[in-house]
Amino acid sequence: GALQEQSEKVWHLSNVMTNEPALRLAKTLRDHTFAERVFFANSGAEANEAAFKLARRYAWDHFGPDKHEIISFKNAFHGRTLFTVSVGGQQKYLEGFEPAPGGIHHADFNDLDSVKALISKEKTCAVVIEPIQGESGVVPADPEFLKGLRQLCDDNDALLIFDEVQTGVGRTGHLYAYEMYGVIPDILTSAKGLGGGFPVAAMLTTAKVGASLAVGTHGSTYGGNALACAVAQKVIDTVSQPEILKGVNERSEKLRQGMMAIGERYGIFSEVRGAGLLLGCVLTEQWKGRAKDFLAAGLEEGVMVLVAGADVVRLAPSLIIPETDIDEALERFETAVKKLAQ
C-alpha cells in the first residue's frame, strides 16, 4: 500500500533536493533510537561502507591520519564490497579479491582480552561488531563483553559501530538489539528488515560524529529515494508497536521450544540460541557439517530453513508469522528430520 501510494507521487529526486518521505523516516528513526543523524543507502553493505568511512573520517578530523585502524571480529560478516568483506572476518569471502584495504584487525568474538591486545589510542578509530553474529552461526554477544567494548572504545577515543543489518528492525524482539543489551553504539547500521523486501538501508549516528560526513564527502544516488523511504516508514511504524515486539518474543519461545523438542527426540541439536526470531539450532557432534542437508530435506517437505555456517540451522521467519504456521512448520521439519535420521 505504501509503495503503491508513493509510486503515484515522487519516486526519485536529485541529491541536491530532499523529499518528504526521507525527512519523515529520518525523524522517525531519530525518535526511536539514540541517533540524531541518518544517512540513507540501498543495502547493508552500503550502510556499513558508509559507517566505516565515517569512522575513519571522524578520527582524521579529530585526531589526524594515523588513527585509522578498525578492529572487527573473526567470523564476522559485514557485506560483499571490498571494504566490508575485508572488515568481515571470513577469509573465504575475500579469496581471489585481494589485495584488501589495510588497517583492519580481527579479534575473537566474546573475548575482551583479544580486543585489549589490539586496541590503541593512537591508531584505532573504531570497533565494529554484530550484536549477534548472524552468518557464522547466530552467536549472541555476551552482555558483559559488549559493555566492556563500550568502555574500551571510550578509553581509547574509538567509535563503537553496531552492524544491525540482520538484528535490527524488531528481529530480536527489540526494535534494535542494542536496546536489549543496554549498550549504546556511536554508529548503527540497518537494512534487510528495514525495507520489508525493498532495497533500503540506513546508517544512524550522533550529531557530533555525523558532522564528519559533510555534503560531498560521501553520497548515494538512490539512497533516501522517496519510494524506499515510504516503504521503510510503514515497516518502522508497524514493527515499533509494543504488541508486535511482544508477539516476536512469544513466537520465539514457541519456535525455540518446538525445535529443541525435535532436537532432543532425534539427537540433532545441542542448543537453540539467538534472540527473538533470529535463532540458530546448533547441530550435535554426529551431525556437524551437515546443516545444508537439513535445508534440502526441509525444502522437500515444503518448509524453508536457512543455514548459518555448516553446523547451524538458522531460523528467521516473518515477525508476524501466524502461530498455526509455526505449528505446521515444526511438523514438516520433523518429517524432514525423520527421513534424514533413519
Rank of each mutant, 00 (worst) to 15 (best):
K192V: 00
F198I: 06
P242A: 14
I187Q: 07
Y181E: 12
K246M: 14
T206Q: 08
M203R: 12
T221A: 14
V200K: 06
G223D: 10
Q233F: 02
D237C: 04
A232R: 08
F198R: 03
G247T: 10
L227K: 10
A230I: 04
Y181Q: 12
Y181P: 09
Q241V: 01
I184P: 00
V235Y: 02
E243M: 12
A232H: 07
A211K: 14
G182H: 07
S252L: 05
G197M: 12
D237T: 12
E250W: 01
H218V: 03
S190I: 13
K246F: 11
V239L: 09
G195V: 04
C229V: 00
T205F: 06
L213G: 07
S252V: 02
V209K: 02
C229E: 11
L245K: 06
E250Y: 03
T206C: 11
V209E: 01
H218K: 02
Y222E: 13
Y181C: 07
S252H: 10
A226R: 04
Q241R: 15
I244M: 13
V239W: 08
S190V: 15
A202D: 04
V231W: 00
V248L: 08
D186I: 00
L188N: 10
P185M: 12
M180W: 06
A201P: 01
A207E: 15
A191V: 06
T206I: 07
S252W: 03
C229T: 00
G193P: 00
C229I: 04
G216S: 06
T221H: 05
Y181N: 11
Q241S: 07
Y222N: 13
G196I: 11
A207P: 01
T189M: 07
G219M: 05
A207V: 00
L204G: 01
A202L: 03
G223A: 08
G197P: 03
P185C: 13
S190D: 03
N225H: 13
E179T: 06
A214D: 02
V200P: 05
K246H: 15
S190K: 04
V239D: 10
K208V: 09
A191I: 06
G197T: 07
A191N: 06
T205L: 08
P242E: 15
A214M: 01
T189R: 04
C229W: 03
G219D: 06
Q233I: 00
G193V: 00
K246T: 15
P242G: 14
T189N: 08
I236H: 12
A232T: 13
A228S: 15
T189F: 01
L245H: 10
V235L: 05
T205I: 03
Y181K: 11
V231G: 14
G182T: 12
Q233M: 14
N225T: 04
G196N: 13
L204P: 01
V183K: 11
R251V: 10
T206V: 04
V200D: 08
S220C: 13
G247P: 09
I187K: 04
V200R: 05
